[in-house]
Write a protein that binds this DNA or RNA. Structure first.
Lengths: 150, 150
DNA sequence: TTATATTTTGGATAATTATACAAAGAAAAA
DNA sequence: TTTTTCTTTGTATAATTATCCAAAATATAA
């Protein structure tokens, strides 16, 4: 999906550069051959819950909502990368098989992401069950999580 | 100082209500007999480093920059309230006497506030020395900290 | 496939926020 | 005190962001 990639790119951009205008995001995306308007970026900023943070040195800067969430994502990515074995999608469920011992941590990290499509997740020793709002949402979740593995 | 009180009121307001426009802050301040324009609120928002956070349920909401800072202030207030003995101001220095054992904690909490007027602070067992940018800043700091005691 | 529903997007603009400038106010100096 | 300097504020407006609406794109159903 185009949208998800773009949002990912936006997250990367605001971490990399000091950006204080959505128009600048538009320009930087164009350099990556991603064409969008400020209107779309505004929507993305909202969905990603990015904030325009008054910087300590005067001026402003777009920023991730909380370091927490960021850290959760980093850890999840790392853990998935290390412990991921396989996964299956069925209706609203996305089931992940992991190396033994990693289930609870991964389930907890997924919860911390607070992705709106995810209703909840739970993990036993080597398995995590992610429950999405509906089958379509589950597909989104699958895409998002598999993205992290690679 | 008028400004400091107003900013304090603003902080309180955004914690109490779900506010998504600076104009609403203006209105709510008026109910407290504090008259300001949106322009001033915009400056206050910047100084307080408040952010307009996209809310999880759609919509927006002004919010404190990080819970961290808030917690630090709460703890500091509580500790000062419990352990404060006396204080003195001299040039750029503000010296606080505390019940024994509270110095390090208070110094650390003051640092966490990241008030721009404060250059740094250090504490031994029962004393904290706050070093301000200059004598005027020190007065500000004194005012702010004594405010917390009461 | 074609038709239908859903999602995403851009254009235009409304809504909101930030700031230049000048004036008022407060502090410091004389 | 008066004068000078620094800070704070409002007005007006520039700059930026959010959203309405319609079109395009995408997915789902038939």
């Amino acid at each position: 999906m185009r949208k998800f990639e773009r949002q990912k790119a936006i997250r990367k951009l605001i971490q990399q550069y000091s950006i204080d205008r959505q128009e600048d995001i538009v320009k930087l995306l164009q350099e990556q051959a991603i064409k969008v308007t400020q209107a779309t970026v505004s929507r993305d900023v909202k969905e990603l819950q990015l904030v325009k943070l008054p910087a300590p040195n005067g001026g402003y800067q777009y920023s991730l909502p909380a370091e927490k969430k960021l850290n959760a994502e980093k850890k999840l990515k790392k853990t998935l990368h290390d412990a991921y074995l396989s996964s299956r999608l069925h209706e609203s469920f996305f089931l992940i098989k992991l190396l033994p011992g990693n289930g609870p941590a991964v389930a907890s990290l997924i919860d911390q992401l607070k992705v709106k499509e995810i209703f909840g997740s739970l993990g036993d020793d080597d398995t995590v069950l992610v429950i999405a709002q509906d089958p379509r949402a589950a597909k989104e979740v699958q895409r998002m999580l598999l993205e992290m593995v690679s």
